[in-house]
Design a protein around this nucleic acid. Sequence first.
RNA 1: GCCCCGUUCUUCUAGCGGCCUAGGAAUCCGGCUUCUCAUGCCGGCAGCACGGGUUCGAAUCCCGUACGGGGUACCA
Length: 429
Amino acid sequence: LLRIEDTDTERNRPELTQNILDMLGWLGLRWDGEPVHQSERAALYAGAAERLLVAGRAYWCDCTAEATQARAKERGGPPGYDGFCRDRQLERGPTTALRFRTPDEGATTFDDIVRGQVAVENRTLEDFVLLRSSGTPTFLLANIVDDADMGITHVVRGEEHVNGTPKYLCLGDALGLAYRPVFAHLPVLVNEQRKKLSKRRDSVSVQAFRDEGYLPSAMVNYLALLGWGPKDGIEVRPLAEIQEQFRLEDVGSAPAFFDVKKLQHVNAEHLRALPVDQFLDESRPFLEHGDAIGVLRTVASLVQERVRLLSEVEPMIAFLLDAPLVVDDDAWTKTMVKGKAAPEMLRATIEALVGLEPWDADDIRGAIEGAAVTVGLVNAEGHAQLSKAQGPVRVATTGRTVGPPLFESLEALGKERTIARLRAASARL
RNA sequence: GCCCCGUUCUUCUAGCGGCCUAGGAAUCCGGCUUCUCAUGCCGGCAGCACGGGUUCGAAUCCCGUACGGGGUACCA
């Protein structure tokens, strides 16, 4: 049973919950339940609060946040509530909140799968709020009530909840609950400044990663590597194997930095491991041009090996699309203007390709090798130096200095377009 | 301030007293393969925060210091 809890009615945003569920679904977490609104469980929380009140473990408090802070400042130090209303015997009113009377003595301890035993002196626990003046329950109260009621077995959450756990446990004791889940507090993820990843400051939206073209399997694979490592050292692997090896007790407790570079590497490997058909399926949502998928099909495996993100697919095959060729300025300058043999190479290539039949990668290669020899781009043995010869042809036909293998690209491009582009480049030079 | 926790290469980690002159991965830098790029393969740079103990022996256990994180809400 997975529970995502948001008890604040005023800030309850269904679309946010839906978004979380969508992302969890994308990551592969199955979700069969229906969201439950806290109002449906109000009686449960109210009952618990009432029991605490009659047992003398809770009291009404009308201190405002400002008054609490002012007193703390006057005391000269520690912020937080000082128990001002503990024995004032206040009745419930429109501005009163219900506070829990934390134990003055003893200590609360609990075992945590990732952190070991954690112990806290009860006197350091302040009297926290159980019910807001609006009558709604706070996180801690709803938590213990729901966990016990729903029979939650494992509480797995971020390190930021460690400090709240003793309060939660004291509350459970006061309620007479014979309930104790297994705890696992995972380390937080930090940014380059070593601060906890925050929604406002950092780009942590799963949605954003999906839009950039990360595969969910790569995402989960990488996430598993933060705070944990497989015993056999094989980091990039199928999810099933990770499930087999992953143990909460092996997770470290130090904060980990979210390294996008490594995530990209993991993604590239997952992308390459895909069967070609599946690579095409995954690419489809990232293709904007209507003919892109058809074009991609002809060079899929060549592209698959060269991209780290699915968003890189279309740019890589842009020269094959039914659209005017865009020639990169730097590529043009570097290869055509500064490349001495460029004009000759283009002319010789056009000549060699015009009568070429059939139009396939091997024969195109042969023709271009011949052109290279013609213009003197040869090595000591008199063989064509393709590494130099292919440059001008590549820029003329694809507009860039890098891309999929040239001969296969030209085969996919077709004879007519290839020659037209070579002529256009030659004329421009 | 107070409470809880953490610290192995730049980063993510393996290591749980001798297999460690500390292993892997990402990044970066070389080389090979090669029609560019990418892949693949080979190699390189780089670390146990510091100081005390305990022990025949410490990255591993204990204490302290420094640094870092989390919490300290009528948010969750």
